[in-house]
Amino acid sequence: MAETVLSSGEKIFILHGIDADFRNDGRRRCEYRSMEIETKLMPQTHGSARLHIGNTDILVGIKVELDVPHADKPNEGKLEFFVDCSATATPAFEGKGGDDLATEISNVLTAAYQTRNAFDLKTLCILPHKKCWKIYVDVLILQCGGNLFDAVGIAVKAALNSTEIPKITAATLDGGEPDIELSDDSYDCIQLDTSNYPIIITLCKIGDNYIVDPTLEEEMCSTSSIVMSMLPNGKISSVVKLGYGSIQFNTFTKMLQMGEIIGLRLNKTLMDVLKEENQFGRQRRIFGFLK
C-alpha cells in the first residue's frame, strides 16, 4: 500500500509487543483507535460521511437516481459501490495504481451487503418492472493509515444512515409509461433503516496472536488476516481471508468469535454516536475538513 519500509528489528519489536498484549501505541490487542465521524458534510450529495481513524481518512458520498430495474429482478432496486483510491494517500495510487486495492474493497462491500438480511433491495422499488431507485455509494480513500476495510465499512454505514431519499408522492402507470411525482418540499424525504447494515471487522494475525485495527506498520508484519462483515443480529454475511499465509482451523474459529464480540460492540457505539449527532438537527455546524 504505502511506502513504509520496516527493518527486521522493528518487526520483531512489534511481534513481541503484541505477544505481551501491548502494542506500539499502548493499545491492547482488541482495542480500536479513536475515531471521528461527521455526516452530511457534502451538501450536493444525498448522504455523506467522513471518517478519521489515526492516519486513515475516508470520505463517502451517496447519490440516488431513478433507474429501470433488472429484467430478472423486477421488484428490486439497485445498490452500487465504487471505491476510488486517491493519489493523495500515496504516490503509488497515481493513475491506475490504486485500482487493485479499490476493486478488492468494492468486492468486500458488495459481498457484505448482498444478503437480504442486511439490505433489502425491495424497499427501493417504486413501480415494478418500470422504476426503481439506484443508490450509488462512492468511497474516496484520502489517506491510508492501516485498517482500510473497517474504516470503509463504518463510513459507508454512517453515510447510508444519513441518506435522504426524496419522497415520492405519486407513482402511476400512465398508459404504460411511468409517471413519478416528487414531493415539493426538499426536506421531505425518507431515511433508510440502517439497523441491520453490516460492520466490517479485520482481524490481523501476527505471530501467534490476532489484533484488530492494525496500523500500517503492524499490517506489514502480518502474514494473514480475516475480513469479516457482521450483521448486528449476530449473523456473518461474508468472510474473506487476505494475505499470503495460512491459518490453523482452531485459530480461525477463535478469530471469528472475537470478531463477533467486537463487531457487536462497535456497531452499538456507532449507532449511539450517529443518534447523538442526529439530535443536533439541521442547525449543526458542519466542519468538514476545516477542523
Partner: peptide, 27 residues
C-alpha cells in the same frame, strides 16, 4: 483555508471558495 490536513503527506492544504472545495497534497 486549512493547511496541514494530512499527517502522512509531505504537505497538504484544503481550500474552500464558496462551495468549491479542493484538497491538495504534495509529496
Amino acid at each position: 483555508v486549512k493547511m496541514g490536513v494530512f499527517g502522512q503527506a509531505d504537505g497538504s492544504a484544503y481550500i474552500e471558495q464558496g462551495n468549491t472545495k479542493i484538497l491538495v497534497t504534495v509529496y
